[in-house]
Design a protein around this nucleic acid. Structure first.
Lengths: 202, 202
DNA sequence: TCGGTTACATACGCTGTGTATGTGGCTACC
DNA sequence: GGTAGCCACATACACAGCGTATGTAACCGA
């Protein structure tokens, strides 16, 4: 990769980033269906031509937006987990960090609400497997490996945890801010009790 | 309501039912977005005019289709639960019946895949509250009342169970038929263990 | 049998996606 | 340092699908 880029390349890169940024805001506030590429283009004083130059389709644009959010979320959660002292604490920290992440309305709406709508349930799930899914599987495997959980059907358990966390995040994100602390505590409580069930010998 | 209906009313009722039926098949096989009202109309040798006469919009048509599936599913599950001898068996039977229901590709696709896409996540969830949601809440309350589960935050626990079951159903529905028995057993296993966690005193 | 209503068909406008073509400014080569 | 080519983007257009306004024929009540 060239460390120095031509003026034109820099401009191009900047517009691409601007499109991505505007699209993120639009998708997060108005949703995928209600957002026209015209709107996105207008937000950055450009035309739909520019958008179609950088992205093959509306769906492709959304995928790029989604990918970005996934990466941000992944890093945030992983950092929280890495800071913990032992696997169990790490898993709990990751859970907390995930719930935090979902309180960001952009993240929760793009990833959990609009994702399945824009890409279709199946494609969205495929995309999730690269991030959240793989992440959870790793954490569970570590817990099982450390003897903290009794053996589990990996794929199924991962899927269940994935969904539980996701829906909790969604519910939190959409709740009245005044209720969020209580809800968050409740979800934490239910999760902990359920995980405790997984601790007993299967 | 008049027990006897005029010829015209009977015809009208029949076309409405035919539209509903055709739409159900189309939505279930091609999805909401890829289904045009033209297709639906053509399936029953009619025009889009007929569709718009009976349903206010494409969305309204889908809502009617969804409602029908919900009612069918609800009845099926409730019957299984009612046949059980005690609350715990009833809850387990309801869970099994739900998984059965999800193996029907029409039900699972309409309710769980296309629902959120067609109505938007929020409206879909509202609609679910009338059926699955209320149903689960009732079952959980019964279990708590019978002392089989320790007290729970009702709304939160309902939401978690709702999502767990739904995603399990979806995963089952989309799995290779050869894997379905194994997966189903695994989900049952994980659920039972997690519910066991809820049994301990919170 | 005749006027009104109802069930549907026909025709059209609008919105939004995608695509084909045009253009001006940057870059690279001589 | 002039020019040829390319690249980033704009403009224009084709096309699909939803919704709506209007037409029409069958039916029903008087």
């Amino acid at each position: 990769m060239p460390a120095i880029r031509s003026r034109r390349e820099q401009y191009s890169e900047a517009t691409r980033a601007a499109i991505l940024d505007a699209a993120t805001r639009r998708f997060a506030t108005s949703g995928f269906a209600a957002t026209g590429l015209e709107d996105v283009a207008a937000d950055i004083q450009a035309t739909r031509g520019a958008v179609y130059h950088h992205f093959a389709s509306k769906k492709a644009l959304f995928e790029a937006v989604l990918e970005e959010q996934e990466v941000i979320g992944f890093r945030w959660i992983e950092r929280a987990r890495a800071a913990a002292s032992d696997p169990w604490q790490g898993a709990m920290a990751a859970m907390e960090a995930f719930l935090d992440q979902c309180l960001d309305p952009v993240y929760s709406r793009i990833v959990w609400q609009e994702g399945p709508i824009a890409l279709g349930w199946q494609a969205w799930q495929e995309s999730e497997k690269k991030y959240a899914y793989a992440h959870i599987a790793e954490i569970l495997a570590e817990l099982v490996g450390a003897g903290l959980l009794s053996p589990l059907p990996e794929e199924t358990a991962t899927h269940v945890c994935f969904t539980m966390l996701g829906s909790a995040g969604m519910a939190l994100a959409q709740a009245d801010p005044a209720d969020q602390p209580r809800l968050r505590a409740e979800y934490g409580d239910v999760f902990r009790r359920m995980l405790a069930g997984l601790r007993a010998t299967g």
